[in-house]
Design a protein around this nucleic acid. Structure first.
Lengths: 253, 253
DNA sequence: TCGAACTCTGTACGGAGTACGGCAAAGTGG
DNA sequence: CCACTTTGCCGTACTCCGTACAGAGTTCGA
């Protein structure tokens, strides 16, 4: 399980790949594949088996070529992941509701939440430097458009959008990781707790008296959600608080 | 650069390690090391060179033993990282201010923000199932104590604490990743942009007219922060919004 | 005293990214 | 039509990872 970082390679080549710049006239033998084929294959693998299964060898296998052939299309694995990310951002195109900024911003969050669940590997990518591709640009533009007409300056607009998208990323990471952990460990949350609790009970220092609030709240939350945590509930709750907070900022103008 | 996941191994053994349960009487030769030595060495390595440099070989080297010797102390790398995480949580002990929940919750966030910057590798760990260790328990207890006296039910308490700590995690990840990206790429944000912008300018589809809001806000933010983004500013801004949002929930009671 | 328990380690396996260099195909200039 | 150059493709190999396994050495209880 790894987190990949964007912007790993030569900026120029990466940008040209992202925008599909053709390059000089081709002389040698005809390519068997296209960059798009490589990227969509990688995305399919990641959707099915997680980002870890996107290895150069596996992608090549899937495409019926030798591993080293991929390096003809893509400088390396880091750039491939940049391309996957930008491509996935291309799915965020739904029209935003015109019924006010709050509904629009909520839609931005919900769309991103669903995208992350369609492509769980997205939460494993941290965009230190975002890929400067067409769909990532369009995503940012769309997010900003949700705030059209508000009396916020440009820095505030950027911060608000960053706050919401960052929050969704974190919440979705929790949600996706919960599923992944169950699959990987072969234990549901309930089974895991059933196995852990007795061990913990035998440790005097871990007694409930030493952590009164934690044990009360923890077991209440565990019972209510039937799990260690309920990511969906945390998402809705957190989003509501954040929108409330932004509303106060907006109202102050 | 990888993200590690907690809860990778056998729950029982992991819990016993976390709480330092002694185990049956020792018969064989005296151990050269202790679990604590292994963990602190791993933490030192991670502090210096990142979580990726915490390999079993490297830790063993540092301790002057053969790689496989570590498996006497720790079942595997996953459990070692659980131990590192719980140990780091042990640094969160500062008294919270008694001047109201908002100040206390802000202090929780600030402490965690600083902890993540002291130990940047912490942001690479996603606690799908939190390590059930003493310091992680104490951390949760401390966070809940910030909300003492509020008229929130247990589920809301859990959600509020989860919202704040999750937000800090995301914000710190951005901050830490920004530093890491500069180190890894050898390019400052300014240099990276200076190299990327001309390439982008030569691509007609990327013209500012196609992304009016994005290019305006993006360049305004870039100039103001002198970088692609300013993590510290995003942290303060987001925390203020979130506390405002929580305040509304509290006031509704 | 002796066997059981325990620590330590050398070797090895499978899998990762990718550097390097050679071979084959296709377009270009004579 | 024939070189020549460019380009795609790929076999081999290097380094590094986690860790399984088996054997050797050490210590204690009976």
């Amino acid at each position: 399980m790894s987190t990949e970082h964007t912007g790993g390679g030569d900026p120029q080549r990466t940008i040209e790949l992202l925008w599909g710049v053709p390059g000089p006239p081709r002389r040698g033998p005809k390519p068997k594949l296209t960059v798009a084929e490589v990227v969509t294959t990688a995305i399919r693998l990641a959707d099915e088996d997680g980002l870890d299964s996107v290895t150069m060898r596996r992608v090549a296998d899937e495409l019926g070529v030798a591993p080293m052939s991929l390096y003809t299309y893509v400088p390396g694995r880091a750039e491939l992941i940049d391309l996957m990310l930008d491509t996935a951002h291309g799915e965020l195109t739904a029209e935003l509701p015109g019924t006010g900024w709050r509904a629009a911003l909520a839609a931005v969050a919900e769309d991103q939440w669903r995208l992350y669940h369609r492509h769980p590997w997205l939460v494993q990518i941290t965009a230190g430097r975002p890929p400067l591709g067409p769909h990532t640009f369009a995503k940012y533009e769309r997010e900003l458009s949700a705030l059209d007409g508000l009396e916020l300056d440009d820095l505030e607009l950027d911060a608000v959008v960053g706050l919401v998208t960052g929050f969704v990323h974190g919440a979705a990471r929790g949600s996706v990781d919960a599923v992944r952990t169950v699959r990987r460990s072969g234990l549901t949350d309930a089974e895991w707790w059933a196995r852990s609790a007795p061990v913990l009970a035998r440790i005097p220092a871990a007694a409930a008296e030493n952590f009164p609030r934690a044990s009360r709240v923890g077991s209440a939350a565990g019972e209510a959600h039937n799990a260690a945590s309920d990511p969906e509930h945390h998402f809705r709750f957190g989003l509501a608080r954040i929108l409330d907070g932004i509303e106060q900022l907006v109202a102050a103008r």
